Amino acid sequence: TRVETATETAWISLVTALHLVLGLSAVLGLLLLRWQFPAHYRRLRHALW
């Protein structure tokens, strides 16, 4: 049971790290898009909202 718990903890930390990385890359990508294509971003936002 001790090994299982350790594996579970490792998986949880791995998944958390993955989610953090994905979230950060998504935010960075959005910022980059907004910085590179302001007109396109505004049009996209206008279409979405």
Rank of each mutant, 00 (worst) to 15 (best):
T1D: 04
T1W: 07
T1E: 08
T1L: 11
T1N: 04
T1R: 08
R2G: 06
R2C: 05
R2I: 10
V3R: 00
V3Q: 01
V3M: 04
V3D: 01
E4G: 04
T5Q: 02
T5F: 09
T5L: 06
A6G: 10
A6M: 08
A6F: 04
E8A: 03
E8I: 04
E8Y: 09
E8R: 08
E8N: 08
T9V: 12
T9W: 15
T9N: 14
T9Q: 09
A10H: 09
A10P: 10
A10D: 13
A10C: 14
A10S: 14
W11M: 06
W11Y: 12
I12M: 10
I12L: 07
S13P: 14
S13H: 12
S13R: 10
S13M: 05
L14C: 04
L14F: 10
L14G: 09
L14H: 05
V15K: 15
V15L: 04
V15N: 08
T16K: 06
T16A: 14
T16H: 06
T16P: 07
A17V: 08
A17K: 03
L18T: 10
L18Y: 04
H19N: 15
H19A: 15
H19W: 15
L20W: 08
L20Y: 08
L20I: 11
L20E: 01
V21R: 00
V21Q: 00
V21P: 03
V21Y: 01
V21N: 01
L22Y: 03
L22I: 10
L22V: 14
L22F: 10
G23M: 15
G23T: 10
G23Q: 03
G23K: 00
L24R: 01
L24M: 13
L24N: 01
L24W: 03
L24E: 00
S25G: 13
A26K: 01
V27N: 02
V27F: 12
V27G: 11
L28M: 12
L28Q: 01
L28S: 11
L28H: 00
L28R: 00
G29C: 12
G29T: 10
G29H: 00
L30R: 03
L30S: 07
L31A: 09
L32P: 00
L32S: 04
L32I: 13
L33S: 02
L33V: 11
L33Y: 08
L33E: 00
R34T: 07
R34H: 03
R34V: 14
R34W: 10
R34N: 02
Q36D: 02
Q36I: 07
Q36C: 12
F37S: 09
F37W: 13
P38E: 05
P38C: 10
A39Y: 11
A39M: 09
A39W: 06
H40T: 14
H40I: 13
H40Y: 14
Y41V: 13
Y41R: 03
Y41P: 02
R42P: 02
R42M: 12
R42T: 14
R42F: 11
R42Y: 13
R42S: 13
R43L: 06
R43W: 10
R43H: 05
R43K: 15
R43C: 08
L44H: 01
L44Q: 02
L44K: 01
L44F: 09
R45Y: 05
R45C: 10
R45T: 11
R45E: 03
H46M: 10
H46R: 05
A47Q: 04
A47N: 05
A47R: 06
L48G: 02
L48D: 00
L48S: 03
L48E: 00
W49E: 03
